[in-house]
């Protein structure tokens, strides 16, 4: 099996193809992560701010999240009129998942900002939008980052399913391996997916640590 793997990887053309698949995989999984954050933060704010919208919004997110990816990948074209084999479908579908995943924790995080901190900010003369950017949003970063970690791993794992509709990044290695009854591409694909997920996860952890220095200090009461 290992000799097969060696033989498979010895071909420069194969390696170049794998590299292309990897790059595709990265943008297919991470663009939706970024888009998802951009959509979910305002939605979370709406759910946090308007009690009436909250139930409906979170309910819809729940339902959306139950739809299996392979179904969503091919339903998207019906909804937005794209080609059924277009990469746009994967990006839109994963953006929807990321959004559905993030709205609830963002809402909860905004709810959890202490009322006295908000009151103090208001009383010092922050206008609402500025207060959101300077106080509420930064305080939600730990929760947002935790959600993004789940989202990134989930997206990286899901992109492969897109191979069934022709846009799957490393997932192409699975369909290729299966159709040729040949294990090496599948093993390479699984390994690279896991490594990618791990690397992105570590990067997100590092990013969170850099952005939230206050969460790392010890809460010691000093006289």
């Amino acid at each position: 099996m290992f000799s097969d793997l060696g033989k498979y990887l010895s071909d420069a053309g194969t390696r170049a193809d794998i590299g292309t698949d990897l790059v595709d995989h990265i943008y297919l999984s991470l663009l939706p992560l970024v888009f998802g954050v951009v959509v979910a933060v305002p939605l979370g704010w709406v759910a946090h701010r308007f009690g009436r919208a909250r139930g409906a919004l979170l309910g819809v997110m729940n339902i959306v999240y139950t739809v299996p990816s392979i179904a969503l990948f091919v339903i998207i074209p019906v909804l937005i009129g794209s080609q059924i084999l277009s990469p746009v479908n994967v990006i839109v579908a994963l953006t929807i998942y990321t959004t559905a995943l993030l709205v609830r924790p963002i809402t909860d995080a905004l709810d959890a900002v202490p009322a006295h901190v908000i009151a103090a900010a208001t009383a010092m003369g922050f206008r609402q939008w500025r207060r959101f950017l300077a106080v509420e949003l930064p305080l939600s970063i730990p929760v947002l980052a935790a959600g993004m970690r789940v989202g990134s791993v989930s997206n990286i794992s899901l992109v492969s399913v897109g191979a069934l509709i022709g846009t799957g990044g490393l997932g192409g290695l699975f369909t290729d391996g299966f159709s040729r009854r040949y294990l090496p591409p599948i093993i390479v694909g699984i390994t690279l997916t896991l490594v990618l997920a791990l690397v992105v996860d570590l990067l997100l952890v590092a990013l969170r640590r850099a952005l939230t220095p206050w969460t790392r200090v010890q809460g010691v009461a000093v006289q």
């Binding site: 789940v150 791993v153 794992s157 992109v159 191979a163 369909t175 391996g177 294990l183 997916t193």
Partner: peptide
């Protein structure tokens, strides 16, 4: 659990089937 979460299902079913 973390590893399993990252595992691509398409790859997993393919490899199980072939093995």
């Amino acid at each position: 659990s973390n590893v399993l979460r990252a595992l691509p299902t398409l790859g997993l079913v393919s490899i199980l089937y072939l093995i």
